[in-house]
Simulated assay, not measured.
Amino acid sequence: MTLPPNDPRRFTQSPTDPAFVQDPYPAYERMRPLGPAVFWEDYGHWCFHRFDDVNALLRDRRFGREGPNPAPTPEHLKPFADFSRHSLLEREPPAHTRLRTLVNRAFVSRAVERLRPRITALAHELIDRFQADGEVDLIPAFATPIPVVVIAELLGVPADMADQLLDWSHRMVAIYQFNADRAVEDDCVAATVAFSDFLRGYIDQRRAAPGDDLISHLIAAEEAGERLSTDELISTCILLLNAGHEATVHAIGNGVKALLETGLDPALAGESATTEEILRFDAPLHLFTRYALEDVEVGGIAFRTGDVVGLLLGAANRDPARFEAPERLWPGRPDGGHVSLGAGIHFCVGAPLARLELQCALPALFERLPGLRLAASPRFADRYHFHGLEALNLVW
């Protein structure tokens, strides 16, 4: 898609610009006067930034994750493309409906709530390891292990493999970053193959000796005739492991940073209203893309079938037309709500778990470490569209 050179809706902003990486919100503010969407030239597609538009488009069935006219896959990316083709995140109904119905059973609120004692105990176990030191980089010591251990235990994967699971995951999701080069692509494929091979072997073990875990339950569903193939099972497990920790790590880190910088009463850290406001205030994912499934016009823009549309979740969550003082961390705000976890049929399947992990981790941290404060200015990692800290150095 091209625009006349003088079209005012053109927008240029490198996602790797250091100032943007550390604070993307001024760039979003520059978008707002240009209309409901901007043509982000660095990406080469339209991006919507207003809350109402993003919320509506997440639910609009004329757009989806499964492109109707996919471009031929380069040979070197075929293993990753094969994985994606079976992923819940990338499918549309009816395949998406079947996969999501099976996975949803493990993530309904009442099932997740049973994990509260384990998550709380894990948070305290991790704090025990560094409390006496008086200082910590919270990202590797606390924010990272909580979600990866929890999702591994839920799936039935050995928690002592956490470091290896993280390595595979980081290498896979790197392909979604802006301007990923051939080296990143090759490394992503290698991680995808290794992760898939591990899970294929582990699934075989679970077939022979089922346990009380999600992998065993999904195998049982497959064998009961609910048409879950082994490739779908592998892709589902990888997706849950990747998505089950990636966003939550950032949410914990961004949340602690926000609470400390704004001086919010630590006693509020475990409140559900605080969790929701943290997710709104500094979302862990800022850009979510979809494809037009038909020729359609939105916001005065004509999309052809197969066109990419970007939804700027981070910008939508700070939309002044929707939120009073959007730059303020305000738990219990009268105009609450956010799109950090998506909406519509692709609403985050692990949302109840992500919320519970925040509600358990943050109060444990502030209760155990009175006087907690920043030791240095936190810095975000250069990994847009993910928005998370590379380090969070704290002292107490």
Rank of each mutant, 00 (worst) to 15 (best):
W168Q: 06
H346N: 02
L287Q: 05
A376M: 03
H76T: 15
V193D: 02
E232T: 03
A71N: 10
T230K: 08
E271L: 14
S216F: 06
N6L: 10
G342C: 02
E277T: 03
L392R: 04
E41V: 10
R383K: 13
A283Q: 10
P145F: 10
R383M: 10
P158W: 01
R85G: 13
L362R: 07
R10I: 10
H76K: 13
H96F: 01
D137K: 02
T192A: 08
A391Q: 12
P210L: 02
E276F: 04
P158Q: 06
P74E: 14
D137W: 01
P72W: 09
L228Q: 13
R280S: 07
A325I: 05
V184A: 08
E367V: 00
L34C: 08
E357F: 09
P140I: 05
G270Y: 06
I219S: 04
S109P: 14
L88Y: 10
V157Q: 13
K257G: 02
P74Q: 14
I252L: 07
M161G: 13
D42Y: 04
D204F: 03
V150D: 02
A209W: 12
D319T: 09
D213N: 08
E75L: 15
T274V: 05
S87R: 03
I219H: 06
C237R: 07
L313P: 14
R110I: 13
A375R: 00
A162N: 05
N242F: 15
S377I: 10
I238P: 14
P36M: 06
V184C: 07
A190S: 15
W396M: 00
F288A: 14
E29S: 14
P326Q: 00
E125V: 11
L240A: 05
L166F: 09
E277P: 07
I203P: 04
